[in-house]
Design a protein around this nucleic acid. Sequence first.
DNA 1: TTGAAAGCGATACCAA
DNA 2: TTGGTATCGCTTTCAA
Lengths: 339, 339
Amino acid sequence: MKTDTNNATTTTVYEVARVAGVSPATVSRYLNGTAKISDEKRASIEKVIEQLNYKPNVLAQSLKMGSSRTIGVLTQSLVSGYFNEAMTGIDEAMKDAGYVPLIMSGHWHASEEAERVELLIARRVDGLVILTGNLSDAQILQYARRVPIVAFGRKLEGKQAFGFCLDNYQAACDAMDYLIEQGHRRIAFIEGPPEQEDARARLAGYRDTLARHNIKVHPKLIVPGDFQESGGLLAVNQLLETGQRFSAIFAGNDLTAYGARLALYRRNIRVPEDVSIIGFDDLHSSMCTTPPLTTVRQPLFDVGICIGQIMLKMINHEKFTVDIPALSLVVRESVRRIG
Amino acid sequence: MKTDTNNATTTTVYEVARVAGVSPATVSRYLNGTAKISDEKRASIEKVIEQLNYKPNVLAQSLKMGSSRTIGVLTQSLVSGYFNEAMTGIDEAMKDAGYVPLIMSGHWHASEEAERVELLIARRVDGLVILTGNLSDAQILQYARRVPIVAFGRKLEGKQAFGFCLDNYQAACDAMDYLIEQGHRRIAFIEGPPEQEDARARLAGYRDTLARHNIKVHPKLIVPGDFQESGGLLAVNQLLETGQRFSAIFAGNDLTAYGARLALYRRNIRVPEDVSIIGFDDLHSSMCTTPPLTTVRQPLFDVGICIGQIMLKMINHEKFTVDIPALSLVVRESVRRIG
DNA sequence: TTGAAAGCGATACCAA
DNA sequence: TTGGTATCGCTTTCAA
């Protein structure tokens, strides 16, 4: 009942073999270089392939070989500069090995993430990359029994599973040290979603560094955010409306910093003359904000490369060691020395 | 010589059938609801599937059905907010129909694009979406003989091909009308890459609108850019260094506007008090620049939805009509009324 | 309603 | 070096 989608009849190894006067096995051997072929047949096959514009059906190959040369990537947002920088690295690291990423987004929603993972597995991806998200470690380990997994944004070690994260805590400490070194004492902090490990680590870095410098942690200076611009905007409004005094803001991430900066702009509070801002992530656009944002650089591209390399090793059952990329403070112009 | 990648033996319809005491055909029928099944067998199958945690092999299904339920998307950058907003729309539009996007990037390089397209076709995607890029229309039409194509960023009409673009020219005219209405006469324009149709259309809109208002088109006010922040920065530097006078800048796109804004900031030129800026694209972050950027909104998400819907129709050989989303000016705070 | 078997397009083993 | 053929996991006639 169903008509062919493609008008042109697809050419197959059989077709090529027939026209070239050889067996399909030989054509396959030619394609994969699996065995020596007489020059005569080789020439013939080459000609026919050219002439018929034959392209092997990857689906059939995958089925037969038990490997789709595809690796599934579960991201949380197709539009996030943060995730997409990592995606680029993954793609870069795997493409030379002939792997193609199949990307799906879980939108930070555990049940949707689980659904996507099942979809990816059903498509027989050779490996799975999970970029943060809300799945439990137990669930991931469970999936790892079906497919090798490398996760980013959580520590994980298992039979076919490996996960790592960057040292957000240390980087937050460094950022705070910098702020304090620049003379800031009353520093506001805009949180990220508490269910995200990274967000908690940054907050911890904030608190601990203050404590280490014997600066009182003022609870009113810690305001909730959501890692989005709107959260940053609201947070600063709240800070201002409740009359807090602060000379600097440590935003949970760059997006938050953007929102915070806008809230300040609205009230004619200058950055960095009146208030300093420091972010976290170093999104591409942070280079061009007004003023350019001082922030913590997350080397996401390198993370992606790293993920890809581990994935490759795992797929090939090779041992691997990991060199986790380091976070670093990038000083631009949104923080001013005071006092 | 090669060991199984997956430790667990994959369960198949045969396995399920054997355990459930039915034929594989019946299991398949159950899976697809292709025929009535006795309650008894149905229950039995259900139980076994559950117990064996059976998931159909999509690869095998695809091979058999001649459809991979995958649609290839050729984008130009994995990190571009511009493209990714469209991606989201495409994903949204197609996922309910069970289609999954397979994304590859051509990086604005015709030969790489061609390579990716071949890869996508080899994977037997059911359809292909081409987001702008540098392939020739002829090449695309050629590919369309093998797979249905919908292209964005070019007008195209063919047997299995359809392409559309947004009216960049008209939107550029609108933006210019707005600037002029606000009293601006000396308006600088930062170009995009001339090989991109959109860039040319915007420039044409700039020129023509000026002409229509009997305002002299001053060649020195038109400076090259590259649709990146750096291009915008350089362009403004050039403008300033060659001593041009201008009260407003029409940036070829938002990224360019960001760079331009930074160049101005560096020289203590205020926006919009001293110079107004208008962008094009309305990237998400343009909402939060300082000041928020007045720009032309490209409804990329809607474009994505539109692309997805057309794709679906094409795959199903249904007629379709297209309602091309409109561009619109979004007035924020980067343009000031003068004179 | 059900089962047997052919076939999707490739690969690789076994013989020759 | 080559060819014949079984097989990957599934769907779908065709018969029963």
